[in-house]
């Protein structure tokens, strides 16, 4: 029952975020456009996964072996835009390559295509938490923002930090207690993930309002 509610909330959040992103896409700044693209890609991936599971009765695990590197690539573009430092662009490209290599090695030697790639997910989460901390430092360095609570970048970054720190815990537990993991953690994870997408949508909305104000 709880699982159904959590996953329903997750899909509902993702759907709302997808719709919202599509509506505001043309009237937001480039970094937020990339967040929109991430939401759209995630939504399409989830549709694809459901289609594979429901219609073709194929396990969905394999999809994430491809999706995680793509998702991380989009995240790095978003972070590159927000951090806006040339030397960081190289580091971010390096991180993407590193994750792709880890994913390949993980698929070949540790978690084959029919098993969920939790190792890569943990590493991706660690990378994203680090990037989020770096973006916090960049925000603090600049005194550009008048009220952080009205800034999309703050909400986006906070949701990343919050969700992916928790994600490390979830997939860490999953790996540690693999045979009989507590199911509640997947429910909480789905719930938090849904919240993260809604926060993404909120950050896009804040940017949409800012852009509109500037135009007026």
């Amino acid at each position: 029952m709880l699982s159904d509610i959590a996953f329903l909330f997750y899909f509902f959040s993702l759907f709302i975020s997808f719709i919202g992103s599509c509506i505001m896409f043309s009237k937001i700044e480039i970094a937020f456009k990339w967040i929109g693209i991430l939401l759209i890609v995630t939504f399409l991936n989830e549709l694809n996964t459901r289609f594979l599971v429901k219609s073709l009765s194929i396990q969905s695990n394999g999809v994430y072996h491809f999706f995680v590197p793509i998702e991380f690539s989009i995240y790095t573009i978003i972070f590159a835009t927000f951090i806006n430092l040339k030397r960081w662009n190289k580091i971010l490209i390096l991180l993407v390559f590193l994750l792709v290599i880890i994913e390949i090695l993980n698929t070949l030697f540790l978690q084959p295509i029919y098993v969920t790639n939790t190792n890569t997910m943990i590493i991706e989460s660690v990378f994203l938490v680090l990037l989020s901390l770096i973006l916090y430092i960049r925000i603090k360095e600049s005194t550009y923002y008048k009220n952080l609570l009205l800034e999309g970048v703050f909400w986006f970054n906070s949701s990343i930090l919050f969700y992916y720190a928790f994600n490390i815990l979830v997939w860490g537990f999953h790996n540690w207690d693999f045979i009989n993991p507590p199911l509640i953690m997947y429910d909480i994870n789905a719930f938090l993930c849904g919240l993260m997408y809604l926060t993404f949508l909120f950050s896009i909305y804040l940017n949409f309002i800012q852009v509109r104000k500037l135009k007026n």
Partner: peptide, 30 residues
């Protein structure tokens, strides 16, 4: 396992909340 997970989860959530709150306060002060 569930208890351990919930405790760890609460700790992580509190830690993140604490960090974000601290960040907001320090940014405001700056």
């Amino acid at each position: 396992d569930v208890i351990v997970f919930i405790v760890a989860g609460i700790l992580v959530i509190l830690l993140m909340f604490g960090f974000i709150l601290y960040f907001l306060i320090s940014y405001k002060s700056k």
